[in-house]
Design a protein around this nucleic acid. Structure first.
Lengths: 364, 364
DNA sequence: CTGAAAGCGCTTACAG
DNA sequence: CTGAAAGCGCTTACAG
């Protein structure tokens, strides 16, 4: 990756002297300095617009011209070594190919770029050990900070960052006991809203399909569901809620869960899915079993479900403010990189997008 | 991002001398060297497993222990400056949040990680200028090479990389006149196969909806379509093919295209969509107009269309071998980083996944 | 078997 | 207004 470059040797007056072909060499400050006949220090000052008041206009002009002529590009690695700053942030999510995370990645990339930061990413697959490995790999590369969607049981990772004074912002999930920056959805509120929407539509026995995890975002979705029932004087039967293991075969687990929910002595009449992936598999199964939505079953889910636009009953869903989430996380991180600040903790509201899958019973 | 670290001063024998608290300092080779009482050179050799035969076992052991005790982590920036190698690759695609590209990103990340490479990404939004800017930003950061899905008219970007001797592999698209590494789908063959599938099902007038672009992957899809008609003695009417502008409102452009295809004196009886995005919008519109698939219209599309699993007529599609594509591109790139090689050009076959949307007319 | 020294390409405190 | 020099944290050719 070396530049083939013709470098000329110049005398003090800048007149071309000899043409010597130097292969595989990028042009450095030194090349500019020797072309113009000044020190590298001066070149550095001029190109970085520092001490502008103290440097002769004429010489500054000549330096800039020479830099352009030689097609100079600063070696950020060298600069980083000296300044101890890489203008790079590490993004660690569960899986970059998950639509939610890739949407976030895109937004973070754009926000970062505005401030001349670059993004390195890694997928930790919901595994704390993988995440720890990634953190260290990226720290070795001297990233200035992290945006992380932490895995279950990754408290130690987060504490590691705190101990080492590394700026970071958690996204999507956080650990209630650890005082740090995070930006997430108000999952409790969203879930409560979802279930109350089901109840308002005339449903009496809402079920829930979620993951079996201690991740607080999903725990809050469970609590929201429970409290919505309580508030509405509906006794919560624990058989109404099914929890899927992260590392199980999601498809068959969801199918089994639905079978069980519908085989109850008094079956549930509606389902809240805790994620689009769960909803996708659930919907396919429900549909293939000839169960009518919303007639037999009302359905609501977290996360946008574009896939259901083509379904006869497009799904009602809780839309996450991904744009705001990504922008805020990046903003908070970059501020913390510039200067250590007090932790900022932000819960954003979901938007309930009502569609056919929760049509009230009256109109079914 | 500095490590708070307690550093001790040791005498030549390695016995702890004084405890001085040094804040915000990462441990360096020098710290290990002074702890063990050897030169940094020796420490470097030991930790990199170089010249192992020449270094005393005992001293090597002490160095390794000290490194572990001090929690040493090598500063890759410093190493990169010296070795002129960053173990970083740049990934430039149109949009990282596009499922096709985020799937590729995930695979590339994994392949790269196996060889201790890290990935920086950027979205060029199908704009050659944005792509050029990204290339330079990442070059400044001394990436070792690139994987790029080049934008239309980005030949100059590619030539720039060639001139500067930067290793890279094009993915998804390439420029026929530029001799370089690339991995793409055999778009011509895939398109031919798709149209012949439509014809074999009894369709007589297949239409096509694609983008108006000179990108060769999409051009090949056009040629494949034309040649399939020719091979089967069907006269190609140019009104059968509609081309959407990249920067138009995709949804309304697709709707207009479908209106026109169906308003022909003798309307088309089937449609090949050149991408999942086109198909998604097309399908929604077709469905909302009460047109039956495959009864009134057979549909086939490029790219997986998970979304249509829930549709009453799941789409027949041409599946791209994303895994193979990502792995090959990464492999070729890393080989080229290690040593300059002759260009490798690979076309991979699509898999035709037949589903209900192209049920033969006999069975409609 | 081991170390002193130079150097990667920058920045910047300091001296003039 | 300008430059010489040190130093960021590594690697490695060279000398012993």
């Amino acid at each position: 990756m070396l530049f083939k470059k013709i470098r000329y040797i110049f005398d003090e007056k800048g007149a071309r002297n000899t043409g010597i072909i130097v292969m595989n060499k990028k042009v450095s400050l030194k090349d500019i300095a020797s072309k113009v006949g000044v020190s590298t220090a001066l070149v550095s000052y001029v190109l970085n617009n520092k001490k502008t008041d103290r440097i002769g206009k004429e010489i500054a002009g000549r330096i800039k011209i020479a830099a352009k002529e030689l097609n100079y590009r600063t070696n950020q690695i060298a600069k980083s070594l000296k300044t101890n700053k890489t203008f790079t942030i590490g993004l660690i999510v569960a899986d970059i190919s998950n639509p939610f995370f890739s949407a976030l990645a895109r937004i973070i990339e754009e926000e970062a770029d505005k401030k001349n930061y670059t993004v390195i990413f890694g997928s930790a697959e919901e595994q704390a050990e993988k995440s720890f490995k990634l953190i260290n790999t990226l720290l070795d590369r001297q990233v200035d900070g992290f945006i992380i969607a932490p895995a279950e049981n990754a408290e130690s990772n987060v504490n590691y960052l705190i101990q080492h004074d590394v700026p970071f912002v958690l996204i999507d999930r956080y650990f209630p006991l650890i005082e740090t920056n995070w930006v997430t959805l108000d999952n409790y509120k969203a879930s409560l809203m979802a279930v109350e929407h089901l109840l308002a539509g005339g449903n009496k026995r809402p079920g829930m399909i979620t993951y079996n995890t201690t991740l607080n975002n999903l725990r809050e979705r469970k609590t929201g569901y429970e409290n919505a029932l309580r508030k509405n004087n509906i006794h919560f039967e624990k058989d109404w809620r099914k929890e899927i293991l992260f590392d199980s075969n999601i498809k068959s687990s969801v199918e089994k869960a639905i079978d069980e929910l519908l085989a109850l002595p008094v079956p549930i009449d509606s389902i809240l899915f805790a994620s689009n992936i769960l909803a996708f598999h659930g919907l396919k199964y429900i549909h293939s079993n000839g169960i009518k939505i919303p007639g037999d079953l009302s359905i609501i889910t977290f996360d946008e479900m574009e896939a259901s636009d083509l379904f006869y009953a497009p799904l009602t869903y809780l839309e996450q403010p991904v744009l705001e989430m990504g922008q805020l996380a990046t903003k908070i991180l970059l501020e913390n990189i510039d200067m250590k600040k007090d932790p900022v903790q932000i819960k954003l509201d979901a938007t309930l997008v009502v569609r056919k899958s929760t049509l009230p019973i009256l109109f079914k």
